Computed example of a mutant assay.
Amino acid sequence: MDPRTLSGWQGYNPYSSDELLAIQMNLEAESAWFTKQNMTFLILPCFDKNSIYPEYLPWPYADAIGPSRLAQIFEHMKLHSKVQLVDVRQPLLTAKKLNQFDTYFKTDSHWNNIGAFYAYKEIVKRLLIVYPQFVPHNLEDFVLDTNLKRAGDLAGMANLDVSHILEHQLVSKKNITANRMSPKKDKILIFGDSFSDFFFKDYFWRHFNEVKYVYGYSNARYKFDKSTILQYRPNVVIIESIERFWINP
Score class of each variant (00 low, 15 high):
Gly11His: 14
Ser16Ile: 04
Ser16Tyr: 02
Ser16Met: 02
Asp18Glu: 01
Glu28Trp: 04
Ala29Val: 15
Ser31Met: 06
Ala32Asp: 02
Trp33Val: 09
Phe34Tyr: 12
Lys36Leu: 10
Gln37Gly: 05
Met39Ser: 10
Thr40Cys: 07
Phe41Ala: 11
Ile43Asn: 07
Pro45His: 00
Pro45Thr: 00
Cys46Gln: 10
Asp48Cys: 13
Lys49Val: 08
Asn50Ala: 04
Asn50Arg: 08
Tyr53Asp: 13
Leu57Cys: 08
Pro58Ser: 15
Pro58Phe: 12
Trp59Pro: 07
Tyr61Ala: 06
Ala62Gln: 05
Asp63Lys: 03
Ala64Gly: 13
Pro67Thr: 03
Pro67Ala: 05
Ala71Cys: 13
Gln72Val: 15
His76Arg: 04
Met77Glu: 04
Leu79Arg: 07
Leu79Glu: 11
Lys82Ala: 14
Leu85Phe: 15
Val88Phe: 09
Leu93Ala: 02
Ala95Pro: 06
Lys96Phe: 01
Lys97Asn: 09
Phe101Arg: 10
Thr103Ser: 00
Phe105Met: 01
Trp111Thr: 03
Trp111Ser: 05
Asn112Ser: 01
Asn113Ser: 06
Phe117Val: 01
Lys121Glu: 03
Lys121Cys: 08
Glu122Lys: 03
Ile123Thr: 02
Val124Trp: 04
Ile129Asp: 02
Tyr131Met: 08
Tyr131Asn: 02
Val135Gly: 08
Pro136Cys: 12
His137Thr: 08
Asn138Phe: 15
Asn138Leu: 05
Glu140Trp: 12
Asp141Glu: 06
Phe142Gln: 05
Val143Asp: 01
Leu144Val: 11
Thr146Lys: 10
Thr146His: 04
Arg150Met: 02
Ala151Cys: 15
Leu160Tyr: 14
Asp161Met: 12
Ile165Ala: 08
Leu166Glu: 15
Gln169Pro: 14
Val171Ser: 03
Ala178Gln: 10
Asn179Ile: 10
Asn179Pro: 14
Arg180Asp: 13
Ser182Ile: 03
Pro183Thr: 06
Lys185Asp: 07
Lys187Gln: 03
Ile188Gln: 05
Ile188Thr: 00
Asp193Arg: 09
Lys201Ser: 08
Asp202Leu: 13
Tyr203His: 03
Phe204Val: 11
Phe208Val: 06
Phe208Ala: 14
Glu210Gln: 05
Glu210Phe: 15
Val211Lys: 11
Val214Trp: 07
Tyr222Gln: 12
Asp225Cys: 01
Ile229Arg: 06
Ile229Phe: 14
Val236Gln: 00
Val237Arg: 04
Ile238Asn: 03
Ile239Pro: 07
Glu243Leu: 10
Arg244Ile: 03
Phe245Leu: 06
Pro249Gly: 15
Pro249Phe: 10
